[in-house]
Structure formats: C-alpha cells, structure tokens
C-alpha cells in the first residue's frame, strides 16, 4: 500500500500520542489510588493483625477496656443486614423496573422513573434520621409484633422488640439500594430487543408470559449485575446504618435486636479510640470490609460469567 503523506499527519500522530498518554495516566491513577489505599489500610492494621492473627476474624470479643478485639459480630452484622436488605429490595426493584419498562405508558414511566431515582439523591443521614424517628418506632410497634406472631417458631423473630435493630437497618438499607437496582434493571429490560417481545406475543403469550419467556431470561446477567451493585452499596453504607442499627457488638439470633456492621463501628469509634491497638483494630475492620466487598464482587462476576457461558456455549 502506498504511503499517504499529508501535511498534518505528523501533528495528528503527536496529538494522538498525547491523548493516549493522558488517558492512560488517568486510568493508572485509579490503580495507584486503590493500591495506595490498600497498602495504607494494611500498614495501619498491622499491629492488630500481629496481635490477634486469624483469631481476629473468628473472635466475638470487642472490648476497648481490655484491648481485646474480634471482628465476627461486625462481619455477621454486615452480611446479614446487606443480604436481608437485598431480600427486601430485589423483588420490589424488579417489580418497579418491570412496571416502568413494560406496563406503564411512557409519560408515567418517565415520571415514576425520575421519582425512583430521586430516592438515590436523598443524603443517607436523612434516611438515618427518618429511620430513628419514624421507621424504627413504626416497625417496632406494627411490623415486629406481626412477624413475631406469624413466625413465632423462628428464632429470627423472637425476643424483645427494639426500634434500633438489625431489621430496621435492613429496611432502611433496602430503601436506599432500591433505586440503584431498579434503575439498572429498567435499563436492562428496555435493552431487550422488541423483536424478542413480539416473538413471544406472536406465540400467544400474555404480557406476563412475555416477560417470563422473553424479557427476564434475556436480561438475567444484567439483573445479577444490578444486584451486585446494590449489594456493594449495602455493604459499605455507613451513616444511615450507624444511626439505626444500635451499634451493639453482639451476634443475636433475633432480627429485633441491635447489632453493628463493619462500617458502622468504624464510624462510631474512630474519634474515641482509646488506644493505638484499638485504632489499628478499626483499620483492620476497614481492611476486612474492603476484602469482603471485593470478594463478593468477584464471586458474583464469576457467577454471571459461568451462567452466561453455559447458556451461550458455541457448538463444537
């Protein structure tokens, strides 16, 4: 092929190179930030890691007066509150997303969609306040007795009913992650080609059957992605949870009892950390939270990958 010579060829090449390097630098900055953060967390957590070893993860003691620290109650609180939040939020979010993408007329869909996204714009401290003064007492007075009566055989719903509790925190978290999950799911459902919908309808499918055979299967990896996003938000949410969960470092079978999460205990205690080891233990909690979030993300991604690979495998 003959070489094309133009006068601005060299200039364009230089411009491209500058652009490449600039964007590369910006991308690398993210890596450097993440790396630096991890190293920093790790080095601050080192005294605690040395003092407690793996026992840190399995011990249920958290006692600044005797300088004994264990993370298990917080890991438990974080996982249970997040999972419970997802159990509440995911069906709701799917319902909202299906309504917006399949059922509601365009003008209504836009308005409701905007309102749902507005939920994400409310500062978490406001959710916390609302949780303390409105949702918590309401749940204690109305939902808790109902659950206790209906599921009295489950230890989850036994014992005293407190307004600052695991259940309150989960409900607040569910409301907070709902807009993220439903916004992503709405986009996922809207991206399903209309040819797929029409193929189902032409077979004599009702609207719900069309959703079941054409929309949901087509969007399944996107739905899982949305749930991961919600899970990430729930794991790390701090202020709202710290305000309504009761911050009690205990593992209690009952959801009506106060608990604590990794994020909430860090927020509550770092200002008044009594000793260097206490502060270091808090850093280690931060490290655990980071690893937990990363691990769950990777696991979920592998799950999506596995699911899509199995279904779309090519003929051999």
């Amino acid at each position: 092929m003959p070489r094309v010579k133009t006068r601005d060829f060299g200039v364009r090449a230089v411009g491209d190179r500058v652009f490449n390097l600039t964007t590369l630098a910006m991308a690398l900055m993210i890596l450097a930030l993440l790396g630096g953060l991890t190293v920093e967390l790790f080095s601050h957590a080192l005294p605690s890691i040395k003092a407690f070893g793996f026992g840190f993860l399995t011990s249920t003691d958290w006692d600044p007066t005797t300088d004994l620290y264990g993370a298990l109650p917080f890991i438990y609180g974080t996982v249970v509150s997040s999972v419970l939040a997802l159990i509440i939020a995911v069906p709701l979010a799917l319902g909202v997303a299906l309504c917006l993408s399949e059922m509601a007329p365009a003008w209504l869909s836009r308005k409701i969609g905007f309102l749902v996204e507005l939920l994400a714009a409310i500062p978490s401290v406001v959710y916390g306040l609302w949780g303390i003064f409105v949702a918590g007492p309401w749940l204690r007075d109305h939902l808790d007795p109902l659950l206790a009566k209906t599921f009295c055989f489950l230890p989850l719903f036994q014992g005293p009913q407190v307004s600052v509790s695991m259940l309150t925190a989960s409900v607040i978290l569910a409301i907070m992650v709902l807009p993220y999950i439903s916004a992503v799911c709405t986009d996922v459902f809207r991206a399903v080609p209309s040819s797929q919908r029409e193929a189902a309808l032409a077979l004599g499918a009702t609207k719900w059957e069309m959703v079941r055979i054409a929309v949901l299967p087509y969007g399944v990896s996107g739905i899982i992605g949305a749930i991961i996003l919600g899970l990430g938000r729930a794991l790390g949410e701090t202020i709202a949870v710290a305000m309504v969960i009761g911050n009690s470092p205990q593992i209690s079978a009952s959801l009506f009892m106060p608990s604590a999460t990794l994020a909430s205990v860090i927020a509550n205690e770092f200002v008044e950390a009594t000793s260097a080891l206490n502060l270091s233990a808090l850093f280690e909690l931060g490290l655990v939270l980071l690893v937990l979030g990363l691990g769950l993300n990777i696991a979920a991604r592998l799950m999506v990958y596995g699911a899509t690979q199995r279904r779309f495998q090519k003929p051999t």
């Binding site: 040819s195 797929q196 032409a202 077979l203 059957e209 054409a214 299967p217 087509y218």
Partner: peptide
C-alpha cells in the same frame, strides 16, 4: 407469525424454543 429476522429465544435450547408456546396460557 414468523418475522423478517429469525428471533429464537437466545437463552433456550432448540427444543425449548420449539416448545416455548406450549407452556403458555
């Protein structure tokens, strides 16, 4: 109805595609 472009359901096997309408209603 058969459409202009083939529209198999991508997540279903060949036999599930054929049987897709049988599960309806």
């Amino acid at each position: 109805m058969v459409f202009q472009k083939p529209t198999p359901f991508p997540t279903m096997s060949i036999e599930d595609n054929v049987a897709a309408g049988l599960k309806l209603n």
